[in-house]
Design a protein around this nucleic acid. Sequence first.
DNA 1: GATATTAATCGTAATATTGCAATGTAACAT
DNA 2: ATGTTACATTGCAATATTACGATTAATATC
Lengths: 108, 108
Amino acid sequence: MGITKTALFNDTQNELALYAKVIGHPARVAILQHLIQTNQCITGELVGELGLAQATISQHLKELKALDLIKGTVEGTAVCYCINQAKWLEVRALFLDFFDTFPINNCC
Amino acid sequence: MGITKTALFNDTQNELALYAKVIGHPARVAILQHLIQTNQCITGELVGELGLAQATISQHLKELKALDLIKGTVEGTAVCYCINQAKWLEVRALFLDFFDTFPINNCC
DNA sequence: GATATTAATCGTAATATTGCAATGTAACAT
DNA sequence: ATGTTACATTGCAATATTACGATTAATATC
């Protein structure tokens, strides 16, 4: 059906899944990495860097912005994007929590 | 088109996105968490725990197994699943790397 | 062997995602 | 004012994902 039954799961599970999903595309990973490395950049730079059409990049940026992972400010005709540090640290903590609990022993 | 242009991105980006994608569903998050907490469990237990149909759970388990995140061994009519610790640590390192590099200063 | 139990697989429907061309919009430039 | 530049949005096609009923395969039990 293509629709996820979020009601069956708790908030942490849904939240983690939501952020994992947005990271779950190499273009969005590349955008985040680029923003981290350069601290900021304009959309045109990303369109040049990655090999995707402008409309596609814009769409990926929209998804990252929807989850508040990045911020954008208009600078003339250009738009400057950067990581939303507060959110980044929040999501980072979410993943660290998830990965820090791991089984010591194997079985099966 | 629904198809990701993986050729445009580097191995790390594609790998991270791939694992993020599989974590990007609350049912699979719940399965992983349950396996971590109980160290191991059979499919039927998961079907009882989460509120999804047996076929759906089986499908999610298949995806986790496809990425080698979990292992399953047949035990009579049941199948016992557990975390593949080696892979778990590998993926964990991938995400720690990704999140450990973050910008000190904000902009925009 | 017949039958129950457990889980994987198949088939299908509904929805989501990815990607881009075309178009729209806002700010700047001349 | 007109054109230009930089992005966003719209509309669409192709593919992927989610979910489940029905069926199948494998092992137990009687």
